[in-house]
């Protein structure tokens, strides 16, 4: 019986999938082996999704231009910014909420957003999860 449902189902077979693909088609048996294969270039992974132009991704921090005014520390809602003794700021990405108040308030534009959004790591105090450690 040609109902609306069957028509929709057949149409769905030929349309682009609404969801994003996983990095690999089938789950590998061993993650370390898969990681090695990726490094050698023998296993191709699906690239991450496209990001919009002004995404609030991982922050970048320019230590040289920082003047140590502490305004960013005052406005950070999650206390991800810690003022150091050498008058610069340490940024913990694991606490960051990506509100961007530090980016807006900085008088010397030392903070900026990047397009990077894959920030998962095995430990929360990993080196790549702390800016200016």
């Amino acid at each position: 019986m040609p109902t609306q449902t069957i028509y929709t189902l057949i149409k769905q077979l030929f349309t682009k999938k609404a969801t994003n693909p996983f990095p690999v088609k089938y789950a590998p048996e061993n993650m370390h082996d898969a990681a090695e294969l990726i490094e050698k270039g023998e296993l191709e992974i699906n690239p991450p999704v496209k990001v919009p132009p002004n995404l609030r991704g991982k922050l970048e921090y320019d230590k040289e231009s920082c003047i140590g005014c502490q305004l960013c520390v005052k406005v950070c809602p999650s206390e991800a910014l810690i003022f150091k003794e050498d008058r610069t700021v340490r940024h913990h990405i694991n606490r960051c909420t990506f509100c961007g108040q530090c980016v807006d308030i900085c008088p010397t534009n030392s903070f900026d957003f990047t397009d990077e959004f894959l920030m998962a790591g095995p430990r929360k105090l990993n080196d790549d999860l702390i800016l200016n450690p």
Partner: peptide, 23 residues
């Protein structure tokens, strides 16, 4: 997607500030 395109975040947009908007 449109909200992410405008605000930069998919949820919790952080667009407002006192006296106006930030994006």
């Amino acid at each position: 997607d449109l909200l992410e395109y405008i605000a930069g975040n998919r949820v919790n947009y952080s667009m407002w500030t006192f006296g106006g908007v930030r994006r």
